[in-house]
């Protein structure tokens, strides 16, 4: 009796392993699984309100269509995809250090990568938006981004029989309203989970091993960068002044907190896919990871809100030798997720 039970357990175990394996290898094999949000084992709990907006295939595909559709902008020239490109982990292209909106208007900040939004509590460089659903309104209505009104986007969508049908399939509604537009976009973006980098596979024991240089880089990174770029998302998502300036035409977090001590503070970005998301910093100040590390080593500029973590020694910044920088960069490159940037679910086809 006992033996039989044990065998039964073993069978279930094997089935689990088999299914897991088949899913991760070939998402096309079980189409429904491709639209299920899965928290990677090494990630924190998601923050998104899935109970109000469960992801479905129809909702995700509708969100994708909207993401790539320039009708969201006033003159039909700018889509979400203009500033958020899959090849750069849904950050902007290097040709757009600052976002470019309708009439080629220049934005004030570098468009950030959209990966792993499901796990974040605040959005944008200043954290002014606290729910993923509300993120697109900023881009749609900003006069130097899409320069459109949410109400007019809804009006245009309601005049389009294709969209009426797609919204009906996804949400069972006959008239499109803005919360459903925002829910569809969230269903698309919330699925942008990047968790299959070399680093992840090393950590989860999935057949990849970091080289000794990368491992040393990880060690240095965790002792010298890990107080801000902490956890599996490589950010504590706090707001800090990292010494890239001492005059702040863009006050950053202080615009939201209305607290003078926050002038010049911006969100600590996640470093996942960081090798793909050049240029760096909210104002696109640096083009390469080398420049970024040189900044932390000897370029930090003092100002009243400069982060305490950068004031440890006799010199501002973080002591880093050239060899250490190389190793850290080797490690940062292991955070690149090639499966994510080639995931066909996110492609416009």
């Amino acid at each position: 009796m006992t033996t039989k039970k044990q065998y039964a357990h073993l069978h279930i175990l094997w089935m689990c392993i088999f299914f897991n394996f088949s899913c991760s290898v070939d998402k096309e094999a079980s189409p429904d699984q491709a639209y299920v949000f899965v928290k990677p084992d090494n990630f924190p709990e998601p923050t998104y309100t899935f109970q109000n907006n469960p992801v479905t295939k129809d909702g995700f595909e509708l969100g994708k269509k909207l993401f790539f559709d320039p009708t969201l902008s006033r003159d039909g020239s700018v889509s979400c995809n203009n500033c958020h490109i899959q090849g750069t982990a849904f950050a902007d292209s290097q040709q757009h250090p600052l976002s470019v909106g309708v009439n080629d208007q220049r934005g004030i900040r570098n468009a950030p990568s959209l990966v792993n939004l499901a796990f974040m509590e605040e959005f944008f460089w200043d954290g002014g938006v606290t729910h993923l659903d509300f993120v697109p309104i900023n881009a749609i209505e900003s006069d130097f981004e899409m320069d459109e009104t949410l109400a007019n986007v809804v009006k245009k969508l309601n005049a389009d029989p294709v969209y009426l049908e797609l919204f009906n399939s996804a949400f069972g509604i006959d008239k499109i309203t803005s919360p459903y537009l925002l829910h569809a976009l969230s269903q698309f973006t919330v699925m942008m989970v990047s968790s299959n980098s070399k680093y992840d596979k090393h950590m989860r024991g999935e057949g990849e091993t970091l080289t000794s240089e990368e491992l040393e880089g990880m060690e240095i990174f965790s002792s010298k960068c890990g107080s801000c770029h902490s956890g599996e998302l490589f950010s504590d998502f706090s707001f800090r002044n990292n010494g890239i300036n001492d005059v702040f035409s863009d006050i950053g977090r202080a615009g939201i907190s209305e607290f003078d001590g926050d002038v010049g503070k911006f969100r600590v970005p996640s470093l996942r896919n960081v090798a793909l998301t050049s240029p760096y910093m909210h104002n696109a100040k640096f083009n390469t990871l080398e420049e970024v590390l040189d900044h932390y080593e000897n370029g930090v500029i003092d100002s009243p809100s400069l982060d305490e973590e950068l004031k440890n020694g006799s010199q501002l910044g973080i002591p880093l030798s050239e060899q250490e920088k190389e190793k850290v960069i080797a490690f940062l490159k292991t955070l690149t997720d090639r499966e994510f940037i080639s995931d066909t679910r996110f492609m416009n086809r």
């Binding site: 938006v129 509300f134 209505e141 009104t149 949410l150 109400a151 809804v154 309203t177 919360p179 939201i256």
Partner: peptide, 17 residues
């Protein structure tokens, strides 16, 4: 939706949601 829908007259701040 409804009275909370910014496209239908809800009073909503985008920048500081």
């Amino acid at each position: 939706g409804g009275v909370l829908d910014p496209a239908e007259g809800a009073w909503f701040w985008n920048w500081n949601a």
